[in-house]
Amino acid sequence: MLRLGLILLVVPALLLMGGYFYDLSLADACLDQGGSWNYQAAECDAAGADHPFVPFMVRHPLIVNGSMLLSVVGLLICMAGLYRRR
């Protein structure tokens, strides 16, 4: 039970951070090339039009909320696993 809790606690957070940093690296590469990153379409606009910043949470609410929910469930399972007598 404790192993399942630790997996649910750690893995969703790592996947969320991986997705965030991948998205951040795409935007950074576009800016390095002199373009403007269109957050809604997830593409680089080389024409130079300014696009507003849209946070990762707004663009991917199901991924963020789902991974945080799984991490909280993992924490609760860890607590129950540690509390239970062996």
Score class of each variant (00 low, 15 high):
residue 18 G to F: 15
residue 31 L to N: 09
residue 9 L to E: 05
residue 70 L to M: 13
residue 40 Q to N: 05
residue 76 L to K: 03
residue 72 V to E: 00
residue 21 F to H: 10
residue 6 L to R: 10
residue 54 V to P: 03
residue 50 D to T: 13
residue 7 I to R: 07
residue 22 Y to L: 09
residue 50 D to Y: 14
residue 15 L to M: 12
residue 2 L to Y: 11
residue 49 A to D: 08
residue 63 I to T: 09
residue 30 C to D: 11
residue 67 S to L: 13
residue 47 A to P: 02
residue 35 G to C: 05
residue 21 F to E: 07
residue 28 D to I: 13
residue 44 C to I: 12
residue 19 G to F: 14
residue 67 S to F: 13
residue 42 A to H: 11
residue 66 G to M: 02
residue 32 D to I: 12
residue 5 G to W: 01
residue 11 V to L: 10
residue 17 M to I: 14
residue 8 L to Y: 01
residue 81 G to W: 11
residue 13 A to D: 08
residue 56 F to A: 02
residue 81 G to N: 07
residue 2 L to M: 11
residue 26 L to N: 11
residue 59 R to M: 12
residue 7 I to G: 04
residue 68 M to F: 14
residue 72 V to A: 08
residue 34 G to E: 12
residue 44 C to V: 10
residue 76 L to Y: 00
residue 16 L to C: 09
residue 2 L to W: 06
residue 77 I to E: 06
residue 9 L to G: 01
residue 59 R to Q: 04
residue 47 A to C: 02
residue 85 R to Y: 11
residue 9 L to R: 09
residue 1 M to Q: 07
residue 43 E to Q: 09
residue 16 L to M: 14
residue 10 V to E: 01
residue 31 L to P: 15
residue 80 A to G: 00
residue 73 V to Y: 02
residue 57 M to P: 00
residue 80 A to D: 14
residue 9 L to D: 00
residue 62 L to P: 00
residue 27 A to C: 06
residue 50 D to L: 07
residue 13 A to Q: 13
residue 59 R to W: 01
residue 41 A to G: 02
residue 1 M to W: 09
residue 49 A to F: 14
residue 23 D to K: 03
residue 74 G to V: 00
residue 84 R to D: 00
residue 69 L to W: 04
residue 81 G to V: 03
residue 14 L to M: 13
residue 17 M to V: 14
residue 35 G to K: 15
residue 61 P to W: 01
residue 41 A to R: 08
residue 3 R to Y: 10
residue 66 G to P: 05
residue 17 M to S: 06
residue 12 P to S: 03
residue 15 L to I: 15
residue 50 D to S: 15
residue 52 P to G: 04
residue 67 S to N: 07
residue 54 V to N: 03
residue 86 R to G: 04
residue 68 M to C: 09
residue 78 C to F: 07
residue 29 A to T: 14
residue 35 G to H: 08
residue 2 L to N: 02
residue 27 A to I: 08
residue 25 S to R: 15
residue 23 D to L: 14
residue 25 S to G: 08
residue 72 V to M: 00
residue 41 A to E: 12
residue 36 S to D: 02
residue 59 R to C: 06
residue 49 A to R: 14
residue 55 P to G: 03
residue 67 S to H: 09
residue 53 F to N: 03
residue 22 Y to E: 12
residue 19 G to H: 04
residue 54 V to E: 05
residue 84 R to Y: 00
residue 38 N to Y: 03
residue 37 W to P: 15
residue 23 D to C: 06
residue 29 A to G: 13
residue 10 V to Q: 01
residue 69 L to P: 01
residue 84 R to Q: 08
residue 33 Q to C: 07
residue 67 S to R: 02
